[in-house]
Design a protein around this nucleic acid. Structure first.
Lengths: 199, 199
DNA sequence: TGGGTTAACCTAACACTGTTCGGTTAATCG
DNA sequence: CGATTAACCGAACAGTGTTAGGTTAACCCA
């Protein structure tokens, strides 16, 4: 195919279809050839619009994180922490398959830094030292990312035989997958509440 | 090379050298061919001792997690939570490059389940409901894994120019890598203390 | 001591991966 | 109308995990 009358590709369309594939087939399910095929194109054509696969994933991650809400700090810092953590987790858990990618790289994404800066400033304004503010922000990220990884409740097998006998206190662990979603949310809320209350 | 007089390979040796490579070159730095070369062998030979690369990584992960200490529950549940979290984090941060792998898969490793069972039982014995015990255990894992990912402090650039101006409250963020280790530990301790206190 | 079996390694290949190079054609601008 | 540029393609490169089939040494038993 020569140059088409109307372009088939655009960075936006590439990102959007790539995210669909990640959501459907997982992070390993995304390859440049498969992505190109989904776009009706050859793999090499993608590199006219995207610098590298890693950059593509970073851009996708950034666009997901851009929905994080840090407006709560206008009220007070506790409310700010809680709202920020909730919307952060909501953003991540709407596309859980990309979370392991975030676990790799540096947090040097502009979106993250901008929000982190605001969070840090609000904590300092509330009277915390710079060092304390950094640690509190880190602790909040621990809970957010830890819960978003969710290799916890969703990591349990659905087969009772895997647990009964061997792990007496986990004899109902096989029920977890069924209520994993709800339990994950509640566990996150409990951890968040306990953390903020304990500060 | 035909069959050697004394075997060159054993599952233990493979695991140990693989972990060395991961520690030195990162998770992506480990390939079966490179591992084989480090062992003075061809890649195909590994498959006589190891079922698959994924299985190899799982075995390595299990052996790392086997050092997690849950003895603190003999004292009381708060002490148990704190000690368990500390030794869990210590185990992970002694080989930080393998943590992203753990973020992928199910937590269905026998070592994890055994410790989780004990933790769950101790919390129930202390008067928490089964559901609460599950959520508390989950919250603890959030903090442990979140802090072990450490895409936080170690994710900052060492170049001041990346921050100054753009992010007013992060104008000293470039100092983070230098004290990342210490700050990570302190942030973890703060989060852990706040979480347990807040329960 | 000899013969068969098995264990341990090898070479070669398969189907992938991300990425680059050079070519072809259509749209666009002066 | 001519030159430039943008958009796509085919083919290739070096790398990946993994498997099949072959070769030889070590081991066990008669």
């Amino acid at each position: 195919m020569p140059r088409p009358s109307t372009p088939l590709l655009s960075p936006d369309r590439i990102r959007s279809v790539a995210l669909e594939i990640i959501d459907r087939d997982g992070l390993d399910g995304l390859s440049m050839r498969k992505l190109a095929a989904s776009l009706g194109v050859q793999a090499a054509s993608l590199y006219g619009h995207v610098r590298t696969k890693d950059q593509l994933l970073n851009d996708i991650a950034s666009s997901i994180l851009s929905s994080v809400d840090v407006s709560g700090f206008a009220v007070d810092w506790r409310e700010g922490l809680i709202r920020c953590a909730r919307s952060y987790r909501a953003a991540l858990s709407s596309h859980p398959n990309i979370v392991p990618f975030l676990a790799y790289g540096p947090a040097g994404r502009a979106e993250s830094l901008q929000r982190l800066d605001l969070l840090h400033g609000a904590l300092v304004d509330a009277g915390w030292s710079r060092r304390e503010a950094t640690m509190i922000a880190a602790g909040l990220m621990y809970i957010v990312f830890g819960s978003a990884l969710s290799s916890f409740s969703s990591g349990f097998s659905a087969d009772p035989a895997d647990y009964s006998g061997r792990y007496p206190h986990l004899d109902r662990a096989h029920l977890l997958p069924a209520v994993a979603h709800e339990l994950d949310r509640d566990s996150f809320e409990l951890a968040l509440a306990a953390f903020v209350r304990g500060l």
